[in-house]
């Protein structure tokens, strides 16, 4: 049997979908940990990125964040987080994986949002101040909306990376789509391995599409269409 027909065989068997080690549960866990990681990263990264961007400070920090984000492998963070999680009694699986994913998600959100705010046309910011907006109003009413396209790009990059990387959780005992890859590899079962790989890929693409769809309704002024509500 070819790997592909084994894969089709595996996913079309309904027992493989249900239960603690089934496709549905692991897919849900994968999505859940990714969602939490991106949300936490956004909550942590957005306020300083917006404020530092508004003050036109912290460019060095933004660059450093990119470099660190690119340089440290996620697997290393998972490995480092594991003993700490164990010592603090959080065990295997979820917590070490989450820590690694948050660390992975932070840099793109921070740098892109920062760049988005810094990149707002200085004339527009000057006009906002000249009209009599307070600093907070300048940020909230003018800089933030105009930073949306880049901030969304940051969120999208983070989310896609997180979805792809959450797969690593399987190596510290977190039940996710990576678990199929892990099991398939150990059991020399290509069908199972392929199930994990294909679903992770599809989930990453779906994430990309969802963020792509968000762009337009959130930034109607960037639409080429002449008619506006």
């Amino acid at each position: 049997m070819s790997a592909f027909s084994e894969f089709v065989d595996f996913i079309s068997t309904s027992e493989n979908w249900w239960g603690r080690t089934g496709i549905a549960h692991r897919l849900a866990e994968h999505v859940r940990i990714s969602g939490i990681a991106v949300t936490v990263a956004a909550v942590v990264a957005l306020p300083p990125a917006l404020w530092l961007g508004h003050r036109r400070r912290g460019g060095v920090l933004a660059v450093a964040a990119v470099n660190v984000g690119q340089a440290v492998p996620s697997f290393a963070i998972v490995s480092l987080a594991l003993p700490i999680s164990l010592r603090w009694g959080h065990g295997f699986g979820f917590w070490p994986t989450l820590v690694a994913l948050i660390a992975l998600a932070l840099p793109p959100i921070f740098t892109n949002t920062y760049a988005g705010v810094v990149g707002v046309d200085p004339a527009v910011v000057q006009a906002a101040r000249g009209m009599g907006m307070r600093e907070g109003e300048v940020l909230r009413k003018v800089e933030l909306p105009n930073a949306i396209p880049l901030a969304l790009t940051g969120l999208r990059l983070s989310a896609v990376q997180v979805v792809a990387t959450a797969t690593l959780g399987a190596f510290v005992g977190f039940g996710c789509l990576g678990s199929f890859i892990n099991e398939g590899f150990r059991q020399r079962d290509d069908g199972v391995l392929l199930t994990g790989a294909v679903l992770v890929a599809l989930l990453a693409i779906a994430t990309e599409i969802v963020f792509g769809l968000l762009q337009r309704p959130l930034t109607p002024w960037l639409s080429r269409k002449k008619d506006t509500r």
């Binding site: 004339a123 000057q126 009599g132 002024w221």
Partner: peptide
């Protein structure tokens, strides 16, 4: 400053219109 500015009209070269607002 913000109160002073609300009472003074301000027009600049590149217009500085808010691109995200109608």
């Amino acid at each position: 400053a913000h109160e002073l500015r609300r009472g003074i009209g301000y027009v600049i070269q590149q217009t500085g219109l808010f691109p995200h607002r109608t």
